[in-house]
């Protein structure tokens, strides 16, 4: 471990240019920060000089001004955040609560696997958005159908990942646990579950990203609020700054939830430094 860190430091010192040194001294990713600034600047310039296709696109400055002037203090804007977040959390958490146990069962029970796997494999390739019409027909409210579609987005991912995770548990670990005196229940809790945590981790990380994709699309089609709806309404009402504000908000919201999930997973698997 110590060797690995030493190795990295050496590469950082040898790397050419001042950014690496600056990054090391300040702990900030200066290269990345510069790229963001360059992106925003380029965008502003393209809009200013009315580059091809940019005639109707608002610039970052205009969008930011509109945001500060009206949206930052507007209750309905923050309600959009809340509505989308609630759907993501509901769909995502439900998917984990049902998907993790199902994945564990499928991985450990051969008969159940034979029974259910073909059905799962057939349903898995159907994109969550394709569930929208059926979902609206089935569920009594639009809210429930959006949550359901969001759930679908994360559900298959976690089931398949947990299932694969169970099947890669080291035989030696199971054998040793038995040698050392563990019974079946203990083996499940202290060997199977921790062995599968990395796979759960992958499933959740992929799942949370997909969940945001799905929720935004579903809101555009069937929602009456939320960040997806906000963005779509900006387009329909010809207030193009709102489209930008909506998109950037979605970006931040997605980033925030991914960061939250990865923080949680880090806490759950402290041995994976």
């Amino acid at each position: 471990m110590a060797d690995a860190t030493a190795g990295q430091t050496v590469t950082a010192c040898n790397a050419p240019g001042g950014f690496s040194r600056l990054a090391r001294l300040t702990g900030v990713n200066w290269r990345g920060a510069l790229a963001v600034v360059a992106f925003v600047l380029g965008w502003e310039l393209l809009v200013r000089f009315k580059a091809l296709g940019f005639a109707a696109v608002p610039g970052p400055l205009e969008s930011l001004t509109a945001f500060w002037a009206t949206y930052a203090s507007k209750a309905s804007y923050w309600e959009s955040w809340f509505a989308s977040f609630r759907r993501v959390v509901a769909g995502f958490v439900l998917a984990q609560l049902l998907g993790i146990p199902l994945g564990l069962f499928l991985g450990t029970r051969e008969r159940l696997r034979e029974l259910m796997f073909p059905v799962l494999e057939l349903m898995r390739p159907i994109p969550p958005i394709a569930w929208v019409p059926l979902s609206i027909l089935f569920w009594p409210t639009h809210e429930l159908s959006i949550i359901f579609i969001t759930f679908i987005g994360a559900f298959f991912i976690i089931v398949i990942n947990v299932h694969d995770g169970v099947r890669t548990i080291k035989q030696e670990h199971l054998w040793l646990a038995r040698s050392l005196g563990a019974g079946e229940a203990m083996i499940f809790r202290r060997i199977v579950l921790p062995s599968v945590l990395p796979a759960i981790s992958v499933g959740m990380t992929l799942g949370i990203a997909v969940t945001w994709n799905v929720v935004i699309a579903a809101e555009m089609i069937a929602g009456d609020n939320g960040l997806g709806r906000l963005t779509w309404e900006g387009y329909v009402s010809h207030t193009s700054t709102v489209v930008i504000i909506g998109m950037v908000s979605i970006g931040f919201a997605g980033y925030l939830s991914s960061a939250l999930v990865s923080w949680l997973l880090h806490k759950l698997t402290p041995w994976r430094a």
């Binding site: 030696e172 670990h173 040793l176 040698s179 921790p194 062995s195 945590l197």
Partner: peptide, 13 residues
Amino acid sequence: RVVVFQHGALFPW
């Protein structure tokens, strides 16, 4: 009778 395996089988967690 406890085994020590070639690739090691300490519980990493």
